[in-house]
């Protein structure tokens, strides 16, 4: 028996919206501690990892660990039948469920849907707990804007960290550009830029993955970039009171 009720159903819709361009079919894992999801994109360059803690739900029960294989595209079709202010409940009775039930509740309406599940034998990757040598916290809409703008100039974006801040740069056929974001300790938390740089890094990434993932900015006003030289970068959106949505992106390395 599994039941998880989102107080804010819109949050679940934003999460699915943020990952739908990156991953097609995913295994949703549910157990006593909460819900998690880990899936790579088709090119095995990016990995999405979602972690939602049971304490963040209005109601949560999961007697036995469950794996529910679902198509993100079909999940979206079901979620499109819900309102952004609905409470959303996920439920299944069986131990080996073949469908996942959804209840959308608003003041004047209650809807019930069933999504057919699929069996996915997806390989899971072990993501080692890493001490990152550069960790940058910055406004998510600023990161989104920089990626979108520099992404117009070149498909690869460079990221260089230092004690002073973080620099994004591109060198393309049409020319080059760089954006340096300085640290600030403004009292407005959503505008703060913080850099913990034990070792500076200088990395290059395919910016289109950032642009696909940055829909997650709707989840949090801040984004955390964790980096070590020649290692995948982690973009993390903290989901208030519930958990986090992370994108791991493998770097591009000079030939």
């Amino acid at each position: 028996m599994f039941e998880a009720k989102f107080e804010d159903g819109g949050l679940f819709k934003k999460i699915v919206e943020a990952i739908k361009e990156l991953v097609k079919n995913v295994n949703l894992e549910a157990n006593g501690t909460g819900i998690s999801l880990q899936a790579m994109d088709t090119s095995h360059v990016a990995l999405v990892a979602l972690q939602l803690n049971e304490k963040g739900f209005k109601k949560y029960r999961c007697e036995k660990s469950l794996t529910m294989g679902l198509s993100i595209e079909n999940l979206q079709k079901i979620l499109k039948c819900s309102g952004n202010d609905d409470q959303i409940t996920l439920r299944t009775q069986d131990e080996e469920p073949t469908t996942l039930s959804f209840t959308f509740e608003s003041k004047n309406r209650i809807s019930e849907f069933q999504l057919n599940l699929m069996s996915l034998d997806q390989e899971q990757l072990g993501v080692p707990d890493t001490e990152y040598s550069s960790v940058v916290r910055m406004p998510s809409n600023e990161f989104t804007k920089i990626c979108r703008e520099l992404g117009n100039i070149n498909e690869a974006i460079g990221i260089e960290t230092s004690k002073e801040g973080i620099k994004f740069y591109v060198k393309g056929d049409i020319g080059e550009g760089q954006v340096s974001v300085k640290i600030n300790d403004t009292e407005k938390p959503e505008e703060r830029v913080e850099c913990e740089v034990d070792e500076p890094v200088n990395l290059s990434f395919a910016v289109r993955y950032f642009n696909l993932f940055n829909k997650a900015s709707a989840l949090s006003s801040q984004v955390i970039l964790s980096m070590s030289q020649d290692q995948p970068l982690v973009i993390e959106y903290i989901i208030e009171e519930m958990g986090s949505l992370k994108l791991y992106l493998a770097p591009k390395i000079n030939d």
Binding site: M40, S43, H44, V45, L47, G126, P232, A250, N254, D255
Partner: peptide, 14 residues
């Protein structure tokens, strides 16, 4: 020219 690396190079399959 830079080459895109795959995640399998960094993360092990469980």
């Amino acid at each position: 020219e830079t080459k895109q690396i795959k995640l399998e190079k960094f993360f092990t399959k469980t």
